[in-house]
C-alpha cells in the first residue's frame, strides 16, 4: 500500500480506507491466544513490580452526576499518595473527571506529577452536534486538562458513516493540539471483533494518541480480547506510520489479578516499552484499592481490608 502521511501520526482518509478494507479477525484463534496469556504465573517479586506499575498507570476516575469539588479533592489526595502508610507506593498517572471539575482537580494536583484528564465530546453517549463537542473539549482544555478522553461517534459508526466518525476525531484533535487525546471506542457496544479493530484503526488514523476500551458507563466494559485486538491495531498502525500509540483499558477491571493479565497481553503483543504510563493506562475507580491491598499483603503476609485504605 502506498501511503501519504498527513502529519506525524495521522493518515489521510483514503489511506485509512485501505487500512480498514477487508479487515478480518480470527475469533477462535484470538480467544485461545488471550486465554493462554491469562495462564502465565507471576511470582512474588515480579508481582510486586507489576502492582507498582499498575498504580503508576492508573487514571483514578470519578464520572458521576453527584461529583462535587469535595469529592475531587479527596480523590486527588489519594492520587498523589495512594497509601499514606507506605511512601514507596508511587502516585497514580492521572485523575479523570468531568470538564466542570477540571479546574478543581488541577488546583489539587498542582504540586505533583499527577495529570488531569477530562472526558469530553458529550461523554458517554457522544450524541451531540460536532460544534457542541468542540466547545465541550475546548472548555476542558481551557480549564487546564492535560489529557482529553473523547468518545467516538457510534451513531455514525453503526450507520456506516466511518468518514464522519474519522472527521470528528480529526476536528477534536485540532482543538486538542498538543494535549493528549484518548479516544474511547466503547467496545461493549461495538459487539464484534471486526468492529473493534476497525474503530481502533480509524481512531488512530484520525490522530488519537491513545485508544480506550470503554466509558465504564455500560455493563459490558473492557475485555482482555478487546485489549488484545487494540494492541494488534496499535502494532499494525506502528508498522504503517511508525507512530507509537497507547492503550487505555477501562470499565470493570476491579482486581489486581485481572489487571496483571492485561499487562501480560501488552507485554507479549507490543513489548516491554509499552509498559509505561505513557503508553498504557488503566481507567478505574476501585482497582487501586485492590492493588494497595495486594502490595500490603506482599509486605506483611496478611490479607487486608479496604477499610484501612483511603476512600477516593
Amino acid at each position: 500500500m502506498s501511503l501519504t502521511k498527513e502529519s506525524k501520526n495521522t493518515l489521510s482518509w483514503s489511506n485509512t480506507v485501505e487500512l480498514i478494507d477487508n479487515l478480518r479477525v480470527d475469533e477462535v484463534g484470538l480467544k485461545e491466544r488471550v486465554a493462554s496469556l491469562a495462564t502465565r504465573s507471576i511470582k512474588k517479586d515480579s508481582k510486586l513490580q507489576a502492582l507498582n506499575y499498575i498504580v503508576t498507570m492508573c487514571d483514578l476516575t470519578t464520572l458521576e452526576g453527584e461529583d462535587t469539588e469535595g469529592k475531587i479533592g479527596q480523590m486527588a489526595a489519594k492520587a498523589i499518595r495512594p497509601d499514606p502508610s507506605n511512601s514507596e507506593v508511587p502516585s497514580v498517572a492521572a485523575v479523570c473527571v468531568y470538564p466542570a471539575l477540571v479546574a478543581k482537580a488541577k488546583e489539587m494536583t498542582r504540586n505533583s506529577n499527577v495529570k488531569v484528564a477530562s472526558v469530553s465530546s458529550y461523554f458517554p453517549s457522544g450524541q451531540a452536534p460536532l460544534e457542541s463537542k468542540i466547545f465541550d473539549t475546548q472548555f476542558a482544555i481551557d480549564q487546564g486538562a492535560d489529557e482529553i478522553d473523547i468518545v467516538i461517534n457510534r451513531k455514525a459508526f453503526f450507520e456506516g458513516d466511518y468518514r464522519k466518525m474519522y472527521d470528528e476525531i480529526v476536528a477534536l484533535k485540532e482543538v486538542c493540539k498538543s494535549v493528549h487525546l484518548k479516544t474511547i471506542l466503547e467496545v461493549g457496544e461495538l459487539k464484534t471483533y471486526e468492529n473493534i479493530k476497525k474503530a481502533s484503526l480509524i481512531s488512530l488514523a484520525a490522530g488519537s494518541d491513545f485508544i480506550k476500551t470503554s466509558t465504564g458507563k455500560i455493563s459490558n466494559g473492557s475485555s482482555r480480547e478487546a485489549c488484545y485486538l487494540m494492541a494488534k491495531a496499535v502494532w499494525d498502525y506502528k508498522m504503517v506510520t511508525g507512530f507509537k500509540a497507547g492503550i487505555k483499558v477501562a470499565g470493570g477491571i476491579r482486581d489486581s489479578k485481572d489487571a496483571i493479565r492485561y499487562l501480560v497481553i501488552v507485554n507479549e503483543e507490543l513489548g516491554p516499552e509499552w509498559l509505561s504510563p505513557d503508553y498504557f493506562r488503566f481507567g478505574a475507580s476501585s482497582l487501586v484499592d485492590d492493588v494497595l491491598k495486594q502490595i500490603k499483603k506482599l509486605k506483611t503476609n496478611a490479607y487486608q481490608s479496604s477499610y484501612y485504605f483511603p476512600r477516593g
Binding site: 506483611t300 503476609n301 496478611a302 490479607y303 487486608q304 481490608s305 477499610y307 484501612y308
Partner: peptide, 9 residues
C-alpha cells in the same frame, strides 16, 4: 492457621 489469624477482613 496463619492465613486465618492474619487476615484483616
Amino acid at each position: 492457621i496463619d492465613d486465618v489469624s492474619n487476615h484483616v477482613e
